[in-house]
Design a protein around this nucleic acid. Structure first.
Lengths: 208, 208
DNA sequence: CTATATTTTTACTACAAAGTCAAATTTATT
DNA sequence: AATAAATTTGACTTTGTAGTAAAAATATAG
């Protein structure tokens, strides 16, 4: 039986196959959303038969749930790293860069998150109003403190964060539009976007 | 027969019902994407039986197609209005405000567009590489001209537009996240977001 | 009011998708 | 090699969904 496994944890095959399945599921869920995705499609993408896939994950929701959980960790991580030590403007600009790199390196995760939120965040609402809000409130206080101390220009910390999330994730979520408008290949936008966003936020924050 | 209609065009009932159906379809497509949406759900939302709905629209794609067409017009309109007459910084900031108002007033349209692009833009790819690209190229040239003439700070015009789209549409597409983090009701974000984005782009563009 | 065009409903078909089960096969252990 | 455990497959049931057809009901024009 899958996942009952032995005392040393997962089998080699279990590790390989469930990773392959999650990778396939990420691709399909990111493109079609939870309801639009089909198990057949995911199984196909992973190179397995449907019953074989269902040997590893008991149903569609199970796969989705595991993916969403992983993404929330990845998603919150750069914000956690955002620390009070270091020069404020540089700290915020470094955060922008980290987020942009994530948009380049994990576009599917960004799209799955987008898809989930678009659908009303049915599986992560409590995460948003709980841990995310707590973390954002904390960092917002830090930003306000920086503003009051004159390290950065006064700015609405919440909307600053929204702007950072929006501009960086845009390159993952709307990459097709970005590439259509620029008539460029995959991720050619990165260098220019990086310079542009650095300038955008640096100009805003630099104390006058 | 529907849509064969009489010489004066559509019947009163045809006008009313097909509008009600499109409104319902917009809601459902925006939430679940094309594949995730079901005709039953749309019919339910519109208060009709499924066969009755299919009397007005021959299939699911038909509804989606009509919605997408309408949205592309609305979507491109503020960018078209973006004119060479008037003070450059004000012109761009006014564009930001128009886009933000659209995010407030037509969130479902924004989400449907987002959903379509997320899924690889299967129905609008030619619009993106054609009319949209042409229009963007044209406006990018105008912005570059403004920069060269010293009316605005030099800036990458394409990435400027991406930033504007990203920051404004974010409030429609991620409104659930925005409202969860702010712990606020619907659209309470508008006033603060408006001030924040004005400052963000005005600071960037103001010639130094 | 009545004839005609229209709208709506009921009953249906065909097919896609989720998920199960037991048998067959493969892999790991001794 | 023999055995046990893990993995894979094929055949299946059930439910959901798209779409059709023809009859019934309703609205509209003369």
């Amino acid at each position: 039986m899958a996942h009952a496994s032995n005392s040393r944890g997962q089998t080699r095959i279990q590790k390989e196959k469930s990773e392959a399945i999650l990778a396939a599921a990420l691709k399909v869920f990111a493109n079609y959303g939870f309801r639009g995705a089909t198990i057949d499609q995911i199984a196909d993408e992973a190179g397995l038969s449907k019953p074989n896939l269902l040997y590893y994950f008991k149903n569609k929701e199970d796969m989705h749930h595991q993916l969403i959980e992983r993404i929330l960790v990845i998603w919150l991580d750069p914000l956690r790293q955002f620390s009070a030590t270091g020069e404020p403007v540089e700290e915020i600009c470094a955060y922008v860069q980290r987020k942009l790199e994530m948009a380049r390196d994990f576009p599917l995760q960004s799209r799955l998150f987008c898809s989930e939120v678009l659908q009303g965040a049915p599986n992560i609402m409590s995460e948003l109003t709980g841990p995310l809000k707590t973390l954002v409130d904390e960092k917002a206080m830090l930003i306000e403190h920086w503003a009051k101390a004159g390290y950065i220009n006064p700015v609405d910390p919440y909307h600053l964060l929204f702007s950072i999330w929006a501009t960086t994730q845009h390159y993952a979520d709307f990459s097709i539009q970005v590439e259509a408008v620029l008539a460029q290949n995959k991720q050619h936008w990165f260098v220019d976007a990086s310079a542009h966003l650095d300038k955008l936020f640096r100009t805003l924050l630099k104390p006058s």
